[in-house]
């Protein structure tokens, strides 16, 4: 069993992440304006000091799903010898961010009430 000390790091259970993936993507795009897929994976890794690693197999389907819903829009740009696809929020995407963040905040508070009733 991994421990949270200087030699072992508790990695976050991917099952916990599954429901939060859209919120993470939307929040990052809200903060950074536009990002490409690889950049999102690296930013998440950097912010969480490697605690959360977004897998490519989960990230791209999520980006495509959000694009299909009209929450994200894309733009292709040339970067030397290849093309790069940038994602950014649409107008409805910006509204979605507010809703998702508020829902996530409520969820975290409720979980804390269950896990740490004394502190909460």
């Amino acid at each position: 069993m991994p421990k949270n000390n200087r030699y072992f790091r508790i990695m976050i259970d991917p099952k916990l992440l599954r429901g939060s993936l859209d919120t993470i993507i939307l929040k990052l795009l809200d903060e950074h304006g536009e990002m490409y897929g690889y950049e999102i994976t690296q930013k998440v890794k950097e912010i969480t000091a490697g605690e959360i690693k977004l897998t490519e197999g989960a990230l791209y389907p999520a980006l495509h799903r959000l694009e299909g819903k009209g929450i994200l829009t894309t733009e292709m740009r040339s970067i030397g010898n290849r093309m790069r696809k940038y994602y950014r929020l649409t107008e409805s995407g910006q509204e979605e961010v507010v809703q998702k963040l508020s829902a996530m905040d409520e969820f975290i508070k409720s979980i804390q009430l269950i896990l740490n009733p004394k502190i909460a």
Binding site: T55, E56, G57, Y60, P61, H64, R65, E67, G68
Partner: peptide, 22 residues
């Protein structure tokens, strides 16, 4: 290998679904 057991297929599958719905 880092794309997991489904490799690239899951990425393609979702993209096809998105454009077909569009």
């Amino acid at each position: 290998k880092s794309f997991g057991i489904f490799g690239f297929s899951k990425v393609q599958e979702e993209k096809v679904k998105q454009i077909e719905q569009y």
